[in-house]
Amino acid sequence: MALTPYVTAEEFRAHPTYLDTETLRSGIMDPGAQTDELTNLLLASSQWADNQCNQPLAAHRVDRHTRGRVEDGNLIVFPSDRPVLSVAAVSYGATMSRMSYVVDPTFRVDDNQTVYIPVGGAAQGRVWADLTYTAGWVSTLLEDHASPGATSLTVMDPTGILPGGSYRLWEPGVEEYVVVDPAWTPPAFATPPAPAVIPLAAPTLNAHTAGYSFTGMPADMRLAVIHYTVSQLMRPDTAAEDSYPDTNLSPGTRKKDSRKDGSGLVAEAVRILNSYARRM
């Protein structure tokens, strides 16, 4: 599940939604409380996006016991969660009681996300396979501030970050892409994740603030989370005003707004996420 929203509150506010997000909790003047409530809603929207795609979208560890086959010296398996970012451990065998462990597995993935792992030998046919891998898209936050020209960034969760990988910093006004130093060695996977220093192939152009997104998620995936969050803030005040009663959306609270509702935004969010959904 999403541990932090895929879009932060300040990143959402920078998007041209034209919504008032400073009065989400009626009668409370504390701006921090309003930000916390918006963060809660963005977290719920991120979880909704996970549910639409039938898997966590943020990079996560998967342990899969499945059937595969050995063909032309490759173990061929079909991962449940996609895209596959790295493979940590592989074993396979004709029976579950006699498995061969693959030392330092390498892999490639075809367009259909089928994973090929070189295992050598002439064995052919169906096998059992145990696969531990990381899948999804990097989604974390900066742990510390960074000055212009920074040669490294500290993130809260390094899960899925790869040497040579390109990621985007979404801090409003100073957005930029960064590339991880190809010589960097990712830390061992940990639960809960520990912050990590990520060395960069080239210095940052701008200063950056802790708490903003460091992500490998496609821009339209983040847009789907924004669309759904906006729809929840625009839902009508009463059932009588609900223009989409046959959907799974229920009436909510909406202050004065000239727009009727956010049902079209929900449909657009679903359309975007369909291209990333895991096929059951």
Rank of each mutant, 00 (worst) to 15 (best):
T185M: 10
F189V: 10
A183G: 12
A194E: 15
V180Y: 03
S147R: 10
G165E: 04
V179R: 14
G160M: 03
H145G: 05
V180T: 08
G173H: 12
A146F: 00
T154C: 05
A146N: 03
P182D: 08
L169H: 07
A150C: 08
F189N: 00
V179I: 15
S152T: 09
P192I: 07
P193R: 04
V174E: 06
V178G: 05
V155L: 04
I161N: 00
P192S: 10
G173K: 13
F189Q: 05
T154Q: 06
M156G: 00
P172A: 12
T191C: 07
S166G: 10
P193E: 06
F189C: 03
E176L: 14
G149H: 07
D157A: 04
P158K: 00
S166D: 13
P158M: 02
M156D: 01
G149C: 08
E171M: 15
P172G: 09
L141A: 05
D144K: 04
I161Q: 00
E171S: 08
R168H: 15
T191D: 14
E143Y: 06
W184Y: 14
P182A: 12
V155S: 00
T185V: 14
P158G: 03
Y167E: 04
L141H: 02
S147H: 08
E143K: 07
A196F: 00
P148C: 08
P172L: 15
S152Y: 04
T159A: 06
A188N: 15
L169W: 06
G160E: 02
G173A: 13
V178A: 08
P158Q: 04
E143T: 03
T151P: 01
L153Y: 01
D181L: 09
P163D: 11
T151Q: 12
A188R: 14
I161F: 06
E175F: 10
L169N: 05
G164W: 13
G164N: 13
M156Y: 00
A150N: 05
P193K: 05
H145Y: 09
L142G: 00
A188H: 08
R168T: 13
V174F: 11
P172F: 11
G149Q: 08
A194M: 10
L169S: 07
E176A: 13
P182I: 10
A194R: 13
A188Q: 11
A188K: 09
V179T: 14
L162Q: 14
P193V: 04
S152W: 02
V174M: 09
I161R: 00
P172N: 14
L162W: 02
H145S: 10
D144G: 01
E171D: 15
A150I: 05
T151M: 09
A188M: 10
A188I: 10
P158T: 01
P187V: 05
A188F: 06
E176F: 12
L169G: 04
G164M: 13
W170D: 09
E175T: 14
P186G: 07
P193F: 04
L142R: 01
G149L: 08
E176K: 13
P192M: 07
V155R: 00
L162Y: 03
G149E: 07
P163E: 12
V180D: 01
H145P: 02
F189E: 07
P192E: 07
P158L: 02
L141G: 01
I161H: 02
E143D: 15
T154L: 02
V179M: 13
S152A: 14
M156C: 07
L153G: 00
V178E: 04
D157G: 02
A183R: 13
A190Q: 11
H145N: 12
